[in-house]
């Protein structure tokens, strides 16, 4: 038995997962994250949060659209995307579901989540009276609650499983940690929160959610920082810390950390007031430019974090 100190031996070749995959991971994070936040607003939040929730469903749907496109374009044989679901082995055909293969599970999760995201999106439009579509009436009331809850669970999965997919390999860095799923999930949440927070200002009746969203964003930022630390620590025994955080990737990590500044900075700066009425934060009205910048910074951070993880492992 080799001592723990001995670095892991990695000889695997790189799958050359690059830009398509990076942006897929990014969009999946936002789509899943926004759905989760939207649903939680609806289920748990104040009626005043409903408009914000609807923004969330919009974002979730729109962010989801590019996902299949990116996944398909990344394939060597795009026309065979469907082989992910249907096994075409002669004489041994049938549905493909391999619970031990995150890619296989993920494809299904994405598909089902797609149904939820779309339905919730349409439902949101109907509630806003933009379109009429009788069927979605189902989603009012009790069933709607369950639906939102399940959708939220799927959202969490879609936002995070991409990290597990990387880990379930023999690549350096990726396969040396169990933290990637969680890391991608929370960074998806914080990215989504930041984006929604910015979008609030485009919908007058949603302003009320600024406070709670700010709080969420700040809490997610803390979580994300925590998971980055855990990720870094788990790499140490494997001896791949240097590969993940060395140059040039260190620069990307700086950007990723910069993405946490609005959240954590805000937290340290003004803190939050927990009163019997609830948690509030003094929300100064900031200029569109500044809030856009803040949101932008967080989103770029979310992207940089994924880039650092994806590329450092494949191109040391």
């Amino acid at each position: 038995m080799t001592a723990l100190a001995e670095p892991a031996q990695h000889f695997a070749g790189s799958p050359d997962w690059t830009w398509y995959i990076l942006f897929y991971f990014f969009c999946a994070g936002l789509s899943g994250g926004s759905y989760v936040i939207a649903s939680l607003m609806r289920l748990r939040g104040d009626p005043a949060d409903e408009p914000a929730a609807r923004i969330g469903y919009h974002v979730s749907f729109l962010a989801l659209l590019p996902c299949p496109v990116l996944l398909i374009l990344d394939l060597g044989s795009p026309l065979r995307f469907w082989h992910m679901m249907w096994n075409t082995t002669p004489g041994d055909g049938g549905l493909n579901f391999f619970y031990w293969s995150p890619m296989s599970v993920g494809v299904w999760a994405l598909l089902v989540f797609g149904v939820f995201a779309t339905a919730s999106f349409v439902h949101a439009l109907v509630l806003d009276g933009r379109i009429r579509f009788p069927l979605v009436g189902l989603l009012d009331g009790g069933f709607g609650t369950v639906f939102a809850a399940v959708g939220a669970l799927l959202g969490l999965f879609v936002a995070g499983y991409t990290g597990v997919l990387l880990a379930v390999s023999n690549q350096p860095v990726w396969s040396d940690t169990w933290a990637l799923g969680g890391l991608f999930l929370v960074s998806g949440l914080s990215g989504s929160a930041a984006l929604l927070l910015y979008l609030l200002r485009y919908r007058a009746d949603a302003a009320a959610s600024a406070g709670p969203l700010t709080v969420s964003e700040r809490l997610y930022a803390v979580l994300e920082l925590l998971l980055i630390v855990i990720f870094a620590i788990t790499l140490m025994p494997a001896g791949t810390f240097g590969q993940a955080f060395g140059m040039p990737w260190a620069l990307l990590w700086l950007v990723a950390l910069a993405g946490l500044v609005p959240g954590i900075g805000g937290l340290l700066g003004s803190g939050l007031a927990v009163t019997p009425e609830g948690v509030t934060v003094p929300v100064q009205s900031v200029s569109a430019a500044r809030s856009a910048a803040a949101a932008g910074l967080v989103l770029v951070g979310v992207l940089a974090l994924r880039a650092a993880v994806i590329f450092s492992a494949q191109y040391p």
Partner: peptide, 9 residues
């Protein structure tokens, strides 16, 4: 965290 942030108020 979300539940905590999204309490009714």
């Amino acid at each position: 965290a979300s539940l905590f942030a999204l309490r009714r108020r």
